[in-house]
Design a protein around this nucleic acid. Structure first.
Lengths: 200, 200
DNA sequence: CTAGTAACTGTAATTATATACAGTTACTAG
DNA sequence: CTAGTAACTGTATATAATTACAGTTACTAG
């Protein structure tokens, strides 16, 4: 879609609103009334311009024959991240196993993706192997929060504690060791914080 | 919405399809062409009938002024059950705290409702206080399954074991006691089996 | 300076659409 | 038997809506 002028944006926005309100596209005359045009041709040429730029489609000879051209819409739902390959960003398309029909707003703050839990290291926090952890993508974490961290290409879910340049990643399971990281010596990236959990 | 005749259902279905295909409601003439009517009045009176029965709304004087009346849709979420009052069925309207935007099909078998967990009796199964347990409504449970059971007006989530007329409800937490029930002496109802869990 | 484009006014004509009125046929409940 | 209703045909007409044509004004890039 080509770039729209301000006026054209305004008109496209109004068309969207009209369709949401009425359930049908507007007529040229309705557009005139709304925008203050005194000539139906003003509406017509705006629509033609919007069509030329790919924002809408016009069906000729048909009343209200205006079709919104869908933007490449984000698939509604949350992407489920499977195995994360070394050296690649966690949200890379290649890692997306599927989209789960769960509203991101179900969680506070909103979830950006789901990550499948491997291992029992967070068992005592009620996080079991195979669970899907909802993650809010952020680079900063508070002490005590459960985070998704990447330590030298390995992605792990642990409780986060930081004192200066020393970070401790605590499992919630006495059978697993605490991971100590000196930020100067090893690369540690916070990929997000846990905001929820789904067991299906 | 009143009950529709077969023909009316057929027409309503066609209107839905037309709107999905074209993005706009049909005209009377389009309906005629599709259904084989030779008179536009046939279309008109069908539309009037559909309006009378509450299936659609007609906006008079407006071309394509047909609006679908949305069914009170249940497909778009799961009811969250809060506190369950004594003596009332668990799925009573009065117990529904809210609808959560989660697809029932996310779980296998499908979830019918969510129940908020109280207490820590299932801690070792990764079920914590405040979690939402997704429940499939059924009256039969297998040994070892986690069930929602009603024992003399109290609703509880436990692991189910049955031997003849003796039922044991096991917590997954050594700090809680096993509940033993003799079906002849006390009323026990299975309200459903756990099929998933959500922590928001 | 000039051509091109956005953003309009104003008029008119054609076609698309809704909708009224007058019937017909078949079925169904009282 | 009869009134009511579903499901149509057939005709007619007013109005809703698209769309062509002829202009005007202001801005912008070469």
């Amino acid at each position: 879609m080509q770039e729209l002028t301000l006026r054209q944006q305004e008109i496209l926005l109004w068309i969207r609103q009209y369709m949401a309100d009425h359930g049908i596209p507007p007529t040229r005359l309705a557009l005139c009334a709304a925008m203050g045009f005194r000539s139906p041709n003003a509406a017509e040429s705006h629509l033609r311009a919007l069509e030329r730029k790919g924002a809408i489609e016009l069906v000729q000879g048909v009343s209200r024959g205006i079709r919104l051209v869908e933007e490449p819409k984000e698939t509604s739902g949350l992407p489920l991240i499977g195995k994360v390959a070394a050296g690649q960003p966690i949200l890379a398309l290649a890692h997306i196993e599927s989209y789960e029909p769960i509203a991101p707003e179900l969680f506070r703050p909103v979830a950006h993706y789901l990550l499948r839990v491997q291992g029992e290291s967070m068992r005592n926090a009620g996080i079991l192997e195979g669970d899907l952890v909802a993650v809010h993508h952020t680079l900063i974490a508070q002490n005590g929060q459960i985070v998704v961290a990447r330590l030298e290409d390995e992605v792990t879910i642990k409780r986060f504690y930081r004192r200066g340049e020393r970070v401790e990643l605590h499992p919630d399971n006495p059978d697993y060791p605490v991971i100590e990281v000196n930020l100067k010596k090893r690369a540690l990236h916070i990929e997000g914080v846990m905001v929820g959990l789904i067991r299906a």
